[in-house]
Design a protein around this nucleic acid. Structure first.
Lengths: 115, 115
DNA sequence: TCATCGTTTCAATGATCATTGAAGCATCAA
DNA sequence: TTGATGCTTCAATGATCATTGAAACGATGA
């Protein structure tokens, strides 16, 4: 293998975090709810996941930078972090088409305003 | 876990295929080269991968629908399939932002013309 | 036909990941 | 303080994945 750039490794990290049915479902739910976030228990209940399993997957998403958490009383509220996802979308778009003059263009013209 | 749609499973499949340093590097190289494609041996040489390891990863990418192959003499030429990647980008974009009115919009306005 | 090249397939080992159950920690109410 | 709640961490098992080396296959050229 050739030496990979940091950018590639970062992309692999994000892809790995999302490449799991449970984690993708969790992230989708967080995105749908928006910045206000959801307590862990509510996610577990709605997705019918064991609390410890959810905690494990949330930690993975958190390590990848896809979600943030904040304590609120005895609840822990999770919310999506759109910056990482936007970075990933940009990377994939660039490496799907824009990186090569041979390939058709498909560059998104707008990005999350939050990021 | 709630029951996932086909769409989600398809996204996980594509994400899993790309969530590997070697496979992401291979796919990037194919995208850069464009539709004309590259023989397997050339990919292995440039990425300094063992031929059998490369073959394994190419099969994974192929199963995910990200690459196509065609025999040419005793070479096997691999080329990218932009449809799958565009579908994934669309899915991620929609589930990153557009799926929720709470989140900022970041929908791409253009897509690969090939697809 | 025979030897060679490019590629794929197979089997085996080691590593990584997902899941489960139990325990731990902090917060809140009585 | 005592008990209950919400969540996280830990350890152990089973499953899946990556890698390696050897072998096999089809196409080509002598």
């Amino acid at each position: 293998m050739i030496i990979e750039t940091m950018k590639n490794d970062a992309a692999v990290k994000l892809l790995s975090a999302l490449a799991h049915t449970s984690r993708l479902a969790v992230f989708r739910m967080l995105v749908q709810k928006g910045p206000e976030g959801i307590p862990a228990g509510e996610i577990a209940e709605k997705l019918k996941m064991a609390p410890n399993a959810l905690s494990f997957h949330l930690k993975e998403l958190s390590h990848a930078g896809l979600v943030r958490s904040r304590p609120e009383g005895r609840f822990v509220i999770y919310s999506p972090d759109f910056r990482a996802m936007n970075g990933l979308l940009g990377y994939l778009t660039e490496n799907c088409c824009a990186g090569s003059s041979k390939a058709p263009a498909c560059t998104p013209t707008t990005q999350c305003e939050e990021c």
